[in-house]
């Protein structure tokens, strides 16, 4: 090896490291992509909020594209996205079910009365079992599930208009909604 080149190795290694660190600044180390994207959504049945005795069966959603929005009355960030969910519900373009994650029924209902109910149905997951099956780790989370019951997209954290326009809407178009 050329004598001078050899002494440039430390600098070269350092610059590579800087490249990665720069990239790292724009990544979120807390956001864990779900391995479930591209896989069948776990099937579950659970009580429906406000409809005593009735159960929701996710298998019944086959043939429809739908959103599953995981939220809770105790979750502050969920209130941030709530108005946007209301706007989405207005357009009636897509079915959106809510999953009240580890929530008390009465408290969840209170929030929906106070802030409006954007959901077609609200499913209760009082003990968080469905949440575990879906790999929920930070509410709110939103799943987009296609006609074949495959999870096509997952968003962690509050939805924003930007996410909706750049990620969700194009995907919905692709899926023919």
């Amino acid at each position: 090896m050329n004598r001078t080149l050899k002494f440039l190795i430390p600098l070269a290694l350092f610059l590579v490291a800087v490249g990665f660190l720069t990239k790292g600044l724009f990544l979120n180390p807390r956001e864990v992509p779900s391995p479930l994207v591209g896989k069948p959504a776990p099937v579950f049945t659970a009580p429906i909020l406000g409809e005593a005795g009735k159960r929701f069966n996710s298998a019944d959603m086959k043939g429809q594209v739908w959103l599953l929005n995981v939220w809770a009355s105790w979750c502050a960030a969920c209130r941030d996205e709530h108005p946007l969910l209301m706007d989405m519900a207005q357009t009636k373009r897509i079915v959106m079910h809510g999953l009240a994650y580890k929530d008390v029924d009465a408290e969840a209902q209170q929030v929906l009365i106070a802030m409006g109910n954007p959901y077609n149905k609200v499913i209760t997951d009082t003990d968080g079992k469905i949440g575990i099956d879906y790999g929920v780790y930070g509410v709110p989370e939103t799943y987009l599930i296609d006609k074949a019951g495959i999870i096509r997209y997952k968003h962690i954290g509050p939805l924003t208009p930007e996410i909706l326009l750049t990620k969700v809407v194009p995907l919905l178009k692709e899926l023919g909604v």
């Binding site: 864990v32 992509p33 779900s34 391995p35 575990i132 099956d133 879906y134 790999g135």
Partner: peptide, 8 residues
Amino acid sequence: LVARYGDF
């Protein structure tokens, strides 16, 4: 667990 949350 890995199936739900990944190798993370």
